[in-house]
């Protein structure tokens, strides 16, 4: 094998190993904190079913969402590895940004629909569905966000 072929093989191996460890870091998030975050996110949406004043309702939603965010951050920090900031490319932010916009838009649309249909405990059901969808898609979104395309 020539030096150039060897260098190409090593560069391919570097990319492959970096993708492997990023995937392992995504899978290796702290399950306890992730579960706590999911519960807080569910509580935030479910709190819309509770009859509260507008201000108190807003505090409940924002507060529970803030708790969820802290829990999800801790799940990453207490995981088995933390992805280095050098992996946060424009593509990473684009994928994460699009995922956030889609999630927020979907949640907003679903909340409006539930309020129009007046389903009993509709927000609680919606929160459960949202958390389930998030759990099912988060790994794939993270993988798409952090994976480097190799030529």
């Amino acid at each position: 094998m020539s030096h150039i072929d060897d260098a190409k093989a090593r560069l391919d191996a570097i990319g492959r190993h970096q993708d492997e460890v990023v995937e392992a870091a995504t899978r290796g998030r702290h399950r306890g904190w992730d579960a706590a975050g999911a519960a807080a996110a569910w509580a935030a949406i479910a709190s819309l079913d509770v009859r509260l004043s507008e201000a108190l309702g807003l505090v409940a939603v924002v507060g529970a969402m803030a708790v969820a965010l802290v829990c999800f951050t801790l799940a990453g920090r207490r995981g088995r590895a933390v992805v280095h900031r050098s992996r946060m490319t424009g593509r990473t932010w684009l994928v994460l940004g699009v995922a956030m916009v889609v999630a927020a838009g979907g949640a907003f649309g679903a909340v409006r629909l539930i309020e129009r249909l007046d389903v009993p405990f509709g927000h609680t059901i919606l929160g459960g569905v949202a958390v389930a969808v998030m759990a099912l898609t988060s790994e794939a979104v993270n993988r798409a966000a952090f994976r480097r395309r190799r030529s």
Partner: peptide, 24 residues
């Protein structure tokens, strides 16, 4: 190769658990 693989993984992370590196 092995050290390059290890360095590659560490370069993509702020830190990684020994167990994760061993298993991967």
């Amino acid at each position: 190769p092995t050290r390059l693989a290890l360095m590659s993984m560490l370069a993509a992370t702020e830190w990684a658990e020994f167990v994760l590196l061993r298993d991967t």
